[in-house]
Design a protein around this nucleic acid. Structure first.
Lengths: 103, 103
DNA sequence: TTAGTTAGTTACTTTATGTAAGTAAGTATA
DNA sequence: TATACTTACTTACATAAAGTAACTAACTAA
């Protein structure tokens, strides 16, 4: 008795955003372009998973990766237009959490 | 070098919403009160995980569980005020997905 | 030559999820 | 009386995802 009436786009979006750490990474990148180690320490995600998530987000066109061949190499991750479009959503989570959650 | 400057409330909210299936369950309950088997089939989550999630959501005060001692027993899950307050957020995901994702 | 940098990757362990069968409490059917 | 059928779960077991820590590449500086 399958009765999936849920919009497949919504389902895909939720599938992306409900991966562990993905939301936190995007939220952190809303501050501005950042390098790997900065995201790692501010978000508290392991390098193994961060590397995986950034690859996925890049493939989805949500995150941009820019290499600066300095020494040591600097790589900056930033949000694309598609990624920046998630800001209202993040603000809503912020609002909700401030009203309904206590620390 | 730990530099977690992220708001703990936001982090908790994201921790809740980024659990697999949680968002879909809430989205489905926005339609109205529903029983276990309806959520199970419409969302496509397994009974094992659905049971776990509904317990968590009830503990968080997001979902309400009401027992109707009919035969066979009917149990209806619905969103509390706190849960309903997540609607704008869900609408944002909907909007974003419709603009930025293709099926 | 040794040490130090960033941005990863690899191997291994622990946790989360999927799958399918089982349970409890009750009614209806043979 | 026995068997089957309902919902709402739970349990046991298998697989997938995430955590941890060590390792690598490419380059510079001491």
């Amino acid at each position: 008795m399958v009765d999936k009436s849920i919009c497949p786009r919504f389902e895909k979006a939720m599938g992306l955003l409900s991966q562990r750490w993905t939301g936190m990474i995007i939220y952190q990148l809303l501050i501005g372009p950042q390098r790997f180690c900065t995201i790692e320490s501010s978000v508290g995600v392991s390098g193994r998973v961060l590397s995986e998530r950034l690859k996925d987000l890049e493939n989805e066109g949500i995150v941009n990766r820019k290499v600066y061949p300095e020494t040591p190499v600097r790589i900056e991750y930033s949000l694309t237009e598609k990624g920046l479009a998630l800001e209202p959503l993040m603000k809503d989570i912020e609002k909700w959490s401030q009203i309904w959650l206590d620390v």
